[in-house]
Simulated assay, not measured.
Amino acid sequence: MFESEFLVSVPINSPFKMAANTKHDGIHIRIMTEKDYEEIKELIFEDYFTGVPLCLPKSKFTTETKELLDGVHRHMVAQDTCLVAIDEVNNGRLVAFALAGAQFPEDLEKQRNELDRIQPELAVLLRFLHGLECQAGIFKRYGVTKLIYSCFTYVNPEMRGRRLGVRLAEAVMELGRSKGFPLMTACCVSFYSARQKEALGMECILSQSYADYKDDQGQEIFTPPAPHKEVRILAIRLINKEE
């Protein structure tokens, strides 16, 4: 998920019409534009990442790391695979978003090499997650050559409790089907995000307890607060045959 070059080969002009349930209670879900991304890019580091279990405080991100992640996010946006939720009742305010992008079998090796460019404090986490994704063997397990990867979802704290995260996840699935992706996957480090996606039918194909992941001295490497006890790799079939 942190290799910028692999997010380029999916056609972005595939026809896609959002379902009726993406416009409800004054909230309209639509595909993210470059202008939308400019509005949220700083929010990603200032709010989203700081609230994710295992992640770094915003003051700890180096300029190089932020630039690298920003490049990855922009490639996903360019594919028309990212979504925003707009509050039409309050002057079209952007209140939630989901970043997602294409992934192919060869990308795992590309991502491993890219980790050398990430600052050490964050690379420890990303190598842990990358190792789990390799262990899961998703492409071989499901017999696919491409998938849509749900990178992360953010909902403004003022708008939480209105199922926006659920609606965004459902919309990403719908979008993935429309673009011919046979599978959607996610790597959930949060108890809440995993629970939400499992409720939508995603299958947990691999999990790793944080308490059981230790360094050479037997010390736990990650100690997130309760109820975040494990990371889960999740997947769901979107279509039975690749197009």
Rank of each mutant, 00 (worst) to 15 (best):
M1H: 04
V8S: 15
I12E: 14
S14F: 13
S14C: 12
F16N: 00
F16V: 03
K23S: 14
I31W: 00
T33N: 03
D36C: 07
Y37S: 04
E39G: 09
K41N: 11
L43C: 10
G51L: 00
K58C: 09
K58A: 11
S59K: 14
S59L: 03
K60Q: 14
F61V: 04
T62N: 12
K66Y: 02
E67P: 09
A78I: 01
C82I: 02
C82Q: 03
C82S: 15
V84P: 05
A85M: 03
V89R: 11
N90W: 01
N91K: 13
G101S: 07
A102T: 14
L108A: 12
E109L: 09
E114K: 15
R117M: 08
V124K: 15
H130W: 08
G131I: 03
L132R: 10
L132A: 05
E133S: 07
Q135A: 06
F139K: 05
Y142G: 06
S150I: 04
F152I: 06
Y154K: 12
V155M: 01
P157L: 00
M159R: 09
L164E: 00
V166Q: 14
A171K: 09
M173D: 10
E174N: 05
L175Y: 00
R177F: 02
F181S: 05
L183V: 10
V189T: 15
Y192N: 11
A194H: 00
Q196K: 11
L200T: 10
E203R: 08
S207F: 00
Q208N: 05
D212H: 13
D212S: 15
K214G: 09
Q217I: 02
Q217E: 14
G218Y: 04
E220I: 14
P227M: 00
V231P: 07
A235Y: 03
E242A: 05
E243F: 05
